[in-house]
Computed example of a mutant assay.
Amino acid sequence: MRTVAIDLGGTAVKLGVFASGDLVAGDELATVDGQIGLDEVADRVETLLEGEPAEAIGIAVPGVVDPRTSSLLSAHGKYAELHDLDLAEWSSARFGHRAVVENDARAALIGELSDGSARGERDAVLIVLGTGIGTAAVMDGCIVRGRHGHGAILGGHVTVDLDGPRCPCGNVGCAEALASTWALDAAAAAGELALGPRLAARRSAHGGIGIRDLIETRDEPQSAAVLDHYIRTWAAVVVTQCHAFDPDVVIVTGGVMRAGEIILPALRDRVHADLWSSSFRPRFVIPDDPSTSVLRGLAALASDPQAKDGHDR
């Protein structure tokens, strides 16, 4: 049995083919200006399959999934061509099977619950720190989706500054608008950040900066101040998730966590300090293989009807 996982990420499309639960083939395509070509994606998948039939398909998108139509309901500036497109039907037309379609943060959480850093946990929250901020939650073994598909995935759009900038989502002072890769680069381009000489040189050389640049220049006071603000903002997101869902474990993932030994202790300590006095202080984990969390979660969803419904995770 071949299960296909397609992760339509914010900056790249990741593909995986699974057999008996193991990832046996993979590929990655860069997006162009936040857009993709589904025909190219399907062609790459067929190449990975090497003539073997696909028996289950899972697709992740970086936004809200309409549970009625399996389409991308909203992603604010990303993948406009997917809006109102029934991805399950597209999958049926290309591969002969309707796909399971899920938000990417939820899929990453399912990947870590099924075969990863939180295996066997029944109460957990996940935060993805990267281009944006994604979140997801599981309570008593059930993935939180909500009546309209928005449940638990909009943690990056909690207001942390009433006087902050307006986010592309329409809200004011969202965590993502204050402490994400895209927000950092936008603030630097607008001259809203004081940059130390090394960070400024990186921006000049590469045409932009990312959070990794902040971390690697944190000996400069300007970078250290911005990084501290980011960690406090991320902590506010995690505290809100913990207050809402009361987890045993917090999974922290995304590109930022390549510097997890620096970020995780500071984030954990801040969260533990800011939680409600009687709240349980959850343990924090980083996935061993965060690059495949979404793919593994999609494979579990696509091949397991109970996992698809979120009843045994």
Rank of each mutant, 00 (worst) to 15 (best):
E52R: 15
A244F: 12
L184P: 10
G63K: 05
D66F: 00
L49A: 10
A300N: 03
V101S: 08
A75M: 03
L109Q: 01
D312G: 13
I57N: 04
L49I: 07
V226Q: 09
E55S: 15
A175L: 08
G111L: 04
D86W: 04
G51D: 01
A205Y: 03
V256M: 09
H150D: 12
K308W: 10
A259P: 00
G9E: 04
A108N: 04
T181Y: 05
L73Y: 14
T131R: 01
H83Q: 15
W90Y: 15
I110N: 05
E176Y: 02
H157S: 09
M257P: 08
H272R: 15
E112N: 05
G34M: 05
S71P: 11
F18T: 02
S278K: 13
V4L: 14
L275C: 03
E121V: 12
V41F: 00
G130K: 06
D161R: 12
K308N: 11
A189C: 08
D213F: 00
S278Q: 11
A188E: 04
S91G: 14
H243I: 10
A244Q: 11
A299P: 02
L85N: 10
E40V: 12
V249N: 12
P197G: 11
R119G: 12
G297P: 06
A187I: 00
Q222I: 01
K14Q: 09
L227Q: 01
R313K: 11
E112L: 05
A177T: 10
V13G: 12
A189S: 09
L162T: 14
D123I: 01
G310K: 03
R283I: 01
W234G: 03
I59G: 01
A5S: 14
I143R: 02
I286A: 02
W90T: 03
P265K: 03
D312S: 14
S303T: 12
S74V: 14
C169M: 09
M139C: 15
G173E: 01
A259G: 10
D22M: 11
R2P: 11
E81T: 15
R270N: 13
I143A: 08
D246W: 04
A307H: 08
R283S: 13
I143V: 15
M139L: 06
L29M: 07
D228A: 13
